[in-house]
Design a protein around this nucleic acid. Structure first.
Lengths: 335, 335
DNA sequence: AAGTTAGAATTAAACGTTTAAGCAGTGCTT
DNA sequence: AAGCACTGCTTAAACGTTTAATTCTAACTT
């Protein structure tokens, strides 16, 4: 690796001190009353030597890295991939770069990632906390490290967060089913104590109750790391019994996994079974007939997370709780 | 932000110099002949104060950051999302973190990203170079910055690279079509001079020729940033003419976009039109009937990229060109 | 007794920036 | 002639590590 050009090389070439070079590079030539010829010479030398600032040195001195960390469950999951993209763009607007990590919904992984990123002195974190990560979140608070929770949050700790109106989302999905004549509606969710999941479940349950369907409430829970097996078992059970006429999936991955099972059976959608998915991706449109889904305002969620985080980084003392409105996209599978 | 604990705090607490603390933290207690009681005391103090090393300071001093940069076209594209995930995991194995950026197939964006990441002193880069990025790549070479190209490469410059056997991929897709009785096979590709695309086109063309179908060669090219409009126009044209009985898409995004158009028309797949996609995602299975696709060995590509890059970072002088074998996954849409 | 060796620690420079503080020199005021 | 204000620059410390060089003491050789 060819030795990089430093501020010192510029200073030597022009015959001034490094301080002047630094001032000029930071646009302080007026404020620091630097002679115009010197300014010009410095700019020339910078061009000529193709000087590139060393962000690491800068970070060390300034105590901030202009980097934010993003910890999601899985970057290869389109939901988080899209979120990452929005975060990347928005962060770039503010001059921040993004380091990411996937926790796989595992608290131990999350702890390692947080430690790694904090040691790398990220200025702040955007994270989707997995189950059992309360200690880590408290640690961040104690250390005064700015962060924003996204997608889920911890009910016992008041932190900055940007989440969906999960309760309303499933509530309105149930309503949609009911409006279209479905009654025996099943919810397939993740087995999790995380609030977003509990809220989705609660929204479903209340929706059923409010529509006089308490007797038909069925909530099936799938384990995150055994999604295939669990889904297989649950769906074949459900489909064989023929006791349900509609199914609501509580996440993106669950929707896709569930659809596999449905397709394997010969059940007709929506004649025999109505389906609503979550975090719809455009590919949901390919299911025959196209799938209805609850859509999250990813663009806004991502942008808002970054903005809130940067506010925190800049010293804001407020704690903000943002709840975004879902949108129910109805296709032929329901409605 | 509560002032962080530094090596100096440990040194003060124990009553030794910072050098000793550093040695102990780096496991050099034997080599540097440090007294056993001191070692113990240092370890205790580290625990007690919950010391976390400052990677930035470390990086500055050591001249390496244990960070790699990943520049893809779009992290929200499942192909790159999955690749990113593999890269993340593999990099973590070697103690590297990953900073990412999306170029949107735009050379100017790519240039900015490269500059940003290089200024942040990443130890190396994995990148999918967009069209017109030759200068940037040469710059990296001149600077001696380790990097690996992935997915595509520049034919005029010999660099480390990990790519698919693009030529064979489309060639064998054509073969599959032909074996199943299709003749009027159209290729829909990106309008691009990038080698991977040219190779995919060439594979198709040669495949057609070798099967005596020279007269039926039709290659349509779609612009990356106008994919919807172009695809719309092309597909309606193709479908109206009814001059084709099979279509091959040259990327993931093209496949999805093309399928939209196909579904809008009332054309039956595979009776009236056979389809093969690229970079198949599991969701391709949902198309009715399931779509055949060319599958890239993403897991291996990602891992290999990281390994090659780390080899370079460690000083390897070899330049490696790795071509991975595709796999043709045939579903009912062809075969 | 002088010299060597080994063990255990310290010192201080270095990485590339930023930035507070200081210092000349000039010209102006009184 | 002394004081002041301005202009334009330099000095040097600091950020938190790593690490080569050095120092000190005690024990061991001859």
């Amino acid at each position: 690796m060819a030795k990089r050009v430093s501020i010192k090389d510029i200073a030597n070439k022009v015959g001034v001190s490094t301080a002047l070079v630094s001032y000029v590079l930071n646009g302080l030539e007026k404020e620091k009353r630097i002679g115009p010829e010197v300014v010009k010479k410095i700019h020339e030398a910078v061009k000529e030597l193709n000087y590139q600032p060393n962000q690491i040195a800068r970070s060390l001195r300034k105590g901030s890295t202009s980097t934010i960390g993003l910890i999601v469950a899985d970057i290869s999951n389109p939901f988080f991939g899209q979120l990452a993209r929005v975060v990347e763009n928005e962060a770039a607007q503010f001059g921040y770069a993004v380091v990411f990590g996937s926790s796989d919904e595992n608290a131990a992984n999350s702890a390692i990632l947080i430690k790694t990123l904090v040691n790398r002195q990220v200025d702040g974190l955007i994270l989707a906390p997995p189950e059992g990560s309360a200690e880590q979140i408290k640690y961040l608070m104690n250390q005064g490290i700015p962060f924003v929770l996204v997608d889920r949050y911890l009910p016992d700790i008041s932190t900055n967060r940007v989440v969906l109106d999960n309760y309303n989302a499933t509530y309105s999905a149930v309503k949609c089913f009911v409006a279209n004549g479905y009654r025996r509606i099943t919810l397939v969710a993740y087995k999790s104590t995380l609030v977003h999941m509990r809220e989705r479940i609660r929204g479903y349950q209340e929706g059923m109750k409010d529509n006089g369907l308490s007797d038909f409430i069925v909530v099936k829970e799938v384990r995150y790391n055994q999604i295939k097996e669990d889904m297989e078992a649950i769906m074949t059970g459900l489909l064989n019994e023929r006791g349900m006429d509609a199914v609501l999936f509580a996440t993106n991955a669950l929707s896709i996994s569930g659809l596999y099972a449905i397709r394997k059976s010969e059940v007709k959608v929506p004649e025999e079974l109505a389906v609503i998915g979550f975090d719809g991706h455009e590919v949901f449109d390919f299911f025959q007939p196209p799938l209805s889904y609850i859509q999250q305002p990813l663009e806004e969620m991502g942008k808002e997370s970054v903005r809130v985080l940067i506010d925190q980084i800049r010293g804001s003392q407020k704690t903000v709780h943002i709840e975004m409105r879902h949108q129910l996209i109805t296709r032929k599978s329901c409605g």
